[in-house]
């Protein structure tokens, strides 16, 4: 049987909010090392890779490897029924066709359980090679979300240019043209406000705003976001999930034809 418990539902609620607009459904692959989900959006332009380690759960039991195909919209509806400070337990029997979510209130007075049918999803799985990226930018997640939102008003594409001076986000269209330049910080007291750029060689890449804005739905999960870039390969936008794992978004670039 499979059973995974988190002492409060907040993180799981944020994870669903981070993926449910991009993906309609996804397979939760469970093993004794934890839970993995990898799925592309319908257009095959972006991909979500979620990793939750078993040691990040307050209780985790997985007797046999289990793949649970979930309708993420339905799962998000069920999680809306949980209070942030409820304990959440996900349970499924081996080779079951349903999964149960149990929410227990802090004062133990209220226990709710929601059962959802599982789906048979034969989703394409992509092999993503370990890559040594030309540029890796770590910056405040709120800042990144703000820039993506602001620049989407000017164009459906954002050009990200990363050099040793800093990283520049540009967009231009009928309204006009916008450039947001962030310099690397050197002496910030709070780590999560730092802008750190590890550059092996400069890159200039173009991406669709609407996917970047879909990725920033994960902002509540982390203070920082990490952007990994190399010429003419997909962008990786990573949000760490404290003590549990991470969510990585991959986005294919737009390339001059």
């Amino acid at each position: 049987m499979f059973e995974a418990r988190l002492n409060n539902a907040t993180t799981l609620k944020k994870i669903l909010d981070a993926i449910k607009d991009l993906l309609n459904e996804g397979t939760f692959d469970c093993s004794d090392s934890g839970i993995q989900l990898q799925a592309m959006d319908n257009s095959h332009v972006s991909l979500v890779s979620l990793t939750l380690r078993s040691d990040g759960f307050d209780k985790f039991r997985c007797d046999r490897n289990l793949s649970m195909g979930m309708n993420l919209g339905s799962m998000a509806k069920i999680l809306k029924c949980a209070n942030n400070d409820d304990t959440v337990t996900i349970k499924a029997q081996d080779n079951a066709d349903t999964v149960t979510f149990m929410f227990e209130s802090q004062n133990q007075e209220k226990v709710s359980d929601y059962e959802m049918k599982l789906m048979n999803l034969d989703q394409e799985h992509l092999g993503i090679p370990e890559t040594d990226y030309s540029c890796v930018v770590r910056m405040p997640a709120m800042e990144f979300a703000r820039i993506c939102r602001d620049l989407a008003q000017f164009s459906e594409s954002v050009v990200i240019c990363c050099t040793k001076e800093g990283v520049k986000f540009s967009a231009s269209g009928d309204v006009g043209s916008a450039n947001v330049k962030l310099a690397q910080t050197f002496n910030v007291d709070k780590e999560e406000e730092a802008i750190v750029i590890e550059m092996q060689e400069p890159v200039v890449l173009t991406f669709a705003c609407r996917y970047l804005n879909a990725f920033t739905k994960a902002t509540p999960l982390s203070n920082q976001v990490q952007l990994s870039m190399s010429a003419d390969v997909p962008l990786v936008v990573e949000y760490r999930i404290a003590e549990l794992g991470h969510i990585r978004y991959y986005l294919a670039p737009k390339i001059e034809d």
Binding site: L126, P234, A252
Partner: peptide
Amino acid sequence: TPVQNDLREFYCLA
């Protein structure tokens, strides 16, 4: 104008 690519042009099916 830049053309949107598909992820499967960069990563092969596992």
